[in-house]
Design a protein around this nucleic acid. Structure first.
Length: 213
DNA sequence: TTTAGGATGAACT
DNA sequence: GTTCATCCTAAAA
């Protein structure tokens, strides 16, 4: 499984919309303990295929970078190919990949994975009634961070390893769909959410319900 | 099956 | 004090 090529910095150093689309089908790998080799049991490898992403560009009102550099958003203004992790709703971490050349803020939110490797470990990290549900294991940005053990300490962590990396095993999605992004109030008309069509592990169905108040 | 409300804390006005 | 790139549970239909 470590024979597949790892996505390099040049992959992330591109337009955010391109990166968000091209990440679909790739495999995200998290090594709980980077001191041990990949195949070592104590390495604590967990992995899943990326099936849903959202793009957040620097000039986008919905992006955390839109009002300039702050302590929270600063990593988005730096080198591409690192993790931007933030804490929200008092409970959940969100995992983003920093994109675009240095000085040009941008990030891709990882919204859903298809569980592939070490499902037992991922389930152990989840709690509640969904603890034993494969379908609900990683089908949401907060859920997948829980399952993979992503925390605020991963802020700024490199996506080129040894703890976090993304592999290309040659899998190509049959079809890719787009929609408005979820959970935001500005820029909802932009079709900057990407997901693999009909994939079982996408976080929400394509029901376009405009919550009118 | 869908929906409403609560949890819980950092950033922002 | 309000917002927020969410999730879980319980109750309604």
């Amino acid at each position: 499984m470590n024979s597949h090529p790892i996505l390099q910095k040049s992959f992330y150093e591109r337009h955010t919309l391109e990166v968000a689309k091209d990440l679909l089908g790739k495999i995200l790998v998290v090594r709980t303990n980077p001191k041990f080799p990949l195949e070592h049991p104590k390495a604590g490898i967990a992995a899943g295929r990326i099936v849903e992403t959202e793009a957040y560009r620097g000039d986008d009102p919905a992006s955390h970078s839109c009002r300039g550099e702050t302590p929270r958003s600063s990593v988005m203004f730096g080198e591409p190919g690192v993790a931007y992790v933030y804490f929200i709703y008092g409970m959940y971490e969100m995992l983003n990949f920093v994109t675009e050349p240095k000085g040009n803020p941008g990030a891709v939110l990882i919204r859903a994975l298809e569980p592939l490797h070490n499902i037992e470990l991922m389930m152990k990290r989840r709690t509640g009634a969904a603890k034993h549900s494969l379908k609900n294991l990683t089908n949401g940005p907060g859920r997948l961070c829980r399952a993979l053990g992503i925390q605020m300490s991963d802020y700024g962590e490199s996506l080129l390893g040894p703890r976090l990396f993304v592999m290309d095993d040659g899998f190509k999605p049959d079809n890719i769909s787009t929609s408005g992004r979820i959970g935001i109030t500005t820029g909802i008309e932009k079709p900057w959410r990407y997901f693999i069509t009909d994939n079982r592990y996408v976080s929400k169905k394509l029901t376009i319900k405009s919550k009118c108040l």
